[in-house]
């Protein structure tokens, strides 16, 4: 695998190249849009997208929209965590149920559950609860799977230590099983939060209610393309940042346990 050839050549660090690629694309787009190669109305130049960004920050309620989206996603993930960890625990201690339902849970975790949104729309109406429900629905199965996996993987020697100390089942859970399976549970919650954010933004966009998704939908409906592009790039940026932070956090957590 070792590529000694590459290291002898003069090479730029990947980070710099990535930056140059982005800068190049932005520059190209600016030129193409400015010179009329591409339609400047439907694909506004980066400079006017930047102006649009300043505008949605100042008067379009970008900060508020972001707060709403995050609050909704966190609420969904909290609901998902409660139900997910509880069902993961049940599937762990009741072996027969684990055998019977874990594969169903895995199917649910990979099923396109967000497509059930019309049902939730008629149950809850065009409001925040539809969005919370869709977020929670999306993140419960992965959290449950990861919780069960973590609990299944607790080392028997730890459980025996607990038994030696005559721990009650409750103590056994909170003092041994829960801490030992925490890394896996955290992975589940991280994945669950991602699912929740994707679902929340998606449903906000579809029903025109709530935070960032609604903001983009509104700007699109108003044909305000510079602001709409700014909103879209902002959502992408926020979710990339969020993914990056939780990934680093998980690595740190795993290396400290």
């Amino acid at each position: 695998m070792a590529r000694t050839m590459a290291s002898t050549r003069l090479t730029l660090p990947p980070l710099l190249i990535r930056f140059l690629v982005i800068a190049g694309l932005v520059g190209l787009w600016e030129i193409a849009s400015g010179s009329g190669w591409i339609n400047a109305f439907t694909a506004p130049a980066p400079s006017s997208v930047w102006k649009g960004f300043e505008k949605i920050v100042a008067e379009g309620g970008l900060g508020e929209a972001m707060a709403i989206t995050f609050a909704t996603a966190l609420m969904s993930a909290a609901i998902g965590a409660v139900f997910g960890i509880a069902s993961g625990y049940i599937l762990h201690i009741w072996k027969a149920a684990g055998e019977a339902y874990t594969s169903w849970l895995a199917a649910l975790a990979s099923a396109p559950l967000v497509l059930l949104y019309p049902l939730f729309l008629v149950i809850f109406g065009r409001n925040m609860w539809t969005i919370v429900a869709m977020g929670a629905l999306g993140c419960t199965p992965p959290i449950a799977l990861k919780a069960k996996e973590g609990l299944d993987g607790v080392k028997p020697v730890l459980l025996n230590v607990g038994r030696t100390f005559n721990l009650t089942p409750k103590q056994q859970f909170w003092m041994i099983m829960f801490p030992a399976s925490l890394p896996s549970i955290f992975t589940g919650i991280r994945i669950g939060l991602l699912f929740a954010i994707i679902n929340v933004v998606g449903v906000e966009f579809l029903v025109n209610v709530g935070g960032l998704g609604q903001l983009i939908a509104n700007l699109g409906d108003r044909f305000d393309y510079p602001q709409m592009y700014a909103g879209i790039f902002f959502v992408i940026l926020v979710s990339v940042a969020f993914f990056w932070i939780t990934e680093k956090l998980e690595k740190w957590l795993l290396s400290n346990t």
Binding site: I198, G213, V235
Partner: peptide, 13 residues
């Protein structure tokens, strides 16, 4: 890093 972003927001474009 782009993989887990909500793609639906590209729909207006």
């Amino acid at each position: 890093y782009l993989a887990p972003t909500p793609k639906i927001v590209f729909l207006p474009i």
